[in-house]
Design a protein around this nucleic acid. Sequence first.
DNA 1: CTAAGTTGCTACATAATTTGTAGCACCTCA
DNA 2: TGAGGTGCTACAAATTATGTAGCAACTTAG
Lengths: 93, 93
Amino acid sequence: MALFDLLGRHWAMGVLWTLSEIGPCTFRKLQEDCESISPAALNTRLKELQAAGFVHRVEDGYAPTELGLRLYGQLRPLGDFSKEWARHLNAQD
Amino acid sequence: MALFDLLGRHWAMGVLWTLSEIGPCTFRKLQEDCESISPAALNTRLKELQAAGFVHRVEDGYAPTELGLRLYGQLRPLGDFSKEWARHLNAQD
DNA sequence: CTAAGTTGCTACATAATTTGTAGCACCTCA
DNA sequence: TGAGGTGCTACAAATTATGTAGCAACTTAG
């Protein structure tokens, strides 16, 4: 699936997630919140996400588009799943 | 989110997706269905997915675990979203 | 028993991607 | 005019992936 090519890049989902959680924000703030993403990679991800129509530039920096927010909506359940997964991993030890 | 570290690797979601769609299958069939994944990368992904508890070995090769199938369930809506997205991209041209 | 096929997987050189750090060019506001 | 913020580029080093070859273990057929 072509969508996986895009999302399966380092930090692609993280950037969209962060942007959707904290709302419109600057390049630099995004860089802080995605701990240890290099500016080069962030820039590349932002360009890809913009080309894909999930993110666009706004006055205050970057923000998710309406489509981007819908994608975030699909991703959000993974947050809860992630907790269930953590419990599973602990139970394994 | 830690889950994104795992899924945001090249072919990680694709492998789980394929495995859930076509059911238990061999290493080599997985390699064919994920067109152009190198055996080294596939092996790495499989080890990671096994360590995460999403995939395990079975008689016929590899199969998603129950937890893996639940994760696939969370991912599945992305399939429909992907079509919506394709429509959106075409409308842009 | 042997030879052919299939399996999972490793080896390794090349290529692509990411990091980490530095810093530039542009703006705004005092 | 200079102090701060902005988005972003440069570039070497590290990490990760590709592509091709092939090995070792196992099954099956003759």
